[in-house]
Amino acid sequence: MDKRNEALLDLLYQCADDDLLVSFRGSEWLGLAPHVEADVAFSSITQNTMGHAVYFYRLLQELGEGDVDVLAHERPALKRRNAIYLEKRNGDGQYDEDPYFDWALAVVRGYFYETYKRVKLISLTASSYEPLAICAKRILPEQRYHLAYWKEWMKQLQQSSPIAREKIRTRIEEAWSQSLDLFDFGQYEQTLLNEGYITDPLELKQQWLAELQSTVKDLPSRPLEQLKNGRNGEHTTDLDVALATLSEVYQTDPVAQW
């Protein structure tokens, strides 16, 4: 296969898998948020985000990669391209048994990811791959609310009790050491940039940091770090568990109509 094409597919998998994992984690939260009203609103964001994943998988389907449900449910962890901070479980416990989930993680991840997604989508609106540019333009207006929601939570919790401030601070520290691969576009990065599919991730990182600095009081001063690089198919066991869950019913009969 032509390297340009492979690079493009890889980028689309990164976008699709990021949104799939974020929405999977969101779907585990459904019904469990700290406040009923916040739960309902959060679920709209999760549904929108899964809808975005579907858009990206559909672009892949159009390029001959296979059915969207096959792409979402059948690919092993090794083939997944999401950044690893996004696959991180919601806290301790299982969503259906003992969900000791951490709202501070939801807020920090929500705010960090939606800020990231926004700068990335803006860059993609100028992508040389026209269908991707169109897709980014469709998603952007809807995604504004996602960012506004998490930003509000971030702002308010930071101004609140010492316990909340500490929880948020701890989760920011954690995010800092696990999210570098968000700004890595994988093995084909140079081709992606040469072909004008997307902007240099270093530039996106600067934009991302600028937005974070406007809201977060004391961001860590050290550079971002990573545990593993999800863009290269390196993942944690959290992803294995997530994939087993999200494909549990599907795998009982992948060819059946559900």
Binding site: E37, A38, V40, S44, I45, Q156
Partner: peptide
């Protein structure tokens, strides 16, 4: 009607509820 700790939060929750 809804419950929220303040008007900013009420605003961000209202539409999707």
């Amino acid at each position: 009607s809804l419950l929220a700790p303040n008007e900013e939060m009420a605003m961000i929750l209202a539409q999707e509820n």
